[in-house]
């Protein structure tokens, strides 16, 4: 049963967006439902984000972002976890006249989390789990220069960014659990003193899991809200195309755990939004991921 609960924590996991509001919006950050698990983890995650951009209220362009991440997660001791990701992104903007494609390595990120609460029942099944985290995104990816380039299309932001997050999971009965998560990103400035505004994200999901033969299906349904502060250039806050605003979304995922492999499909659709004074509209977010779970060696278990 412990295993069931822990695996039930597995679908979104560490994600720092390389571009906060790229012609559109990326998720802020999430360690998601793997928070209470003590497996090591390596994997690949792919995400497609689609946006429309408007000029004077008329559709002017469409943007599509395809981001792929090599990810890992490792457990240091009983309470400390390290997450990391190296992204590669392909972005395409299509206007009436032409299409522009920008691709390259994004900014890698590392996140350190600490389990503040880890309450188990007599069967050693986790009942309540609270994780807090601190992360950093490093500006080593390909980034554009504002205002010359279409900066929002680039995979990197060119800035050091910091992340703070808290993630709480509560088990409800044998098959359900609830998770709430909040995160805040502090964005730095790039070499030309362009700075994306800070962003905040809160989300809550209900998780359901069911065993089928030797596999396990885990599904989730929840809500997410993102806020983005306005970007600034050379210390002055932008008033037009400032990447600021909010998005409220519904999100869902289906996951299959079989042997040591976890396959996941995620979808997100905005319910309401106001981005860059209505100049940008998020259409949908789709995700696909494959992770391999590495069981802890016996001597690692014995340490705990």
């Amino acid at each position: 049963m412990k295993y069931i609960f822990l695996i039930g924590m597995l679908f979104s996991y560490a994600q720092l967006s390389a571009c906060d509001l790229c012609g559109g919006v990326g998720s802020n950050a999430s360690i998601g439902i793997f928070a209470a698990n003590q497996f090591h983890l390596v994997g690949w995650r792919s995400q497609l984000r689609s946006f429309d951009s408007y000029l004077f209220g008329i559709k002017h362009s469409s943007e599509m972002y395809w981001q792929n991440d090599l990810t890992f997660r490792t457990q240091l001791g009983r309470k400390v976890q390290i997450y990391g990701a190296i992204p590669f992104q392909v972005a395409r903007q299509k206007t009436d006249f032409n299409a522009t494609v920008v691709q390259g390595i994004g900014d890698p990120n590392v996140l350190l989390t600490y389990a503040l609460i880890d309450r188990k029942d007599s069967m050693h099944v986790t009942q309540d789990f609270l994780n807090i985290g601190l992360g950093v995104k490093m500006p080593v990816g390909k980034s554009g220069n504002y205002p010359v380039d279409l900066k929002n299309l680039y995979p990197g932001t060119g800035s050091w960014d910091g992340l703070f997050l808290a993630n709480y999971t509560h088990r409800i009965g044998t098959r359900f659990s609830f998770q709430g998560e909040a995160s805040h990103t502090l964005n730095g400035a790039d070499q030309s003193s362009f700075r994306y505004g800070n962003s905040t994200q809160v989300s809550s999901v209900f998780i359901y899991n069911q065993k089928v033969n030797s596999s396990r299906f885990i599904s989730s349904l929840g809500l997410q809200q993102d806020w983005f502060a306005a970007s600034s250039y050379q210390g002055v806050q932008l008033t037009e195309k400032a990447n600021n605003g909010y998005v409220g979304s519904v999100k869902a995922s289906i996951n299959l755990l079989t042997y040591n492999w976890l396959f996941s499909i995620q979808a997100q659709k905005s319910l309401f939004q106001e981005l860059s004074q209505g100049a940008v509209q998020q259409k949908f977010v789709l995700g696909l991921s494959v992770h391999y779970l590495i069981k802890k060696k016996q001597h690692e278990k014995n340490k705990h």
Partner: peptide
């Protein structure tokens, strides 16, 4: 020059 054959009731341009 920039040409488009997109069919629509309205266009917005920024070149």
């Amino acid at each position: 020059s920039f040409s488009s054959e997109a069919k629509a009731k309205s266009y917005a341009f920024d070149e």
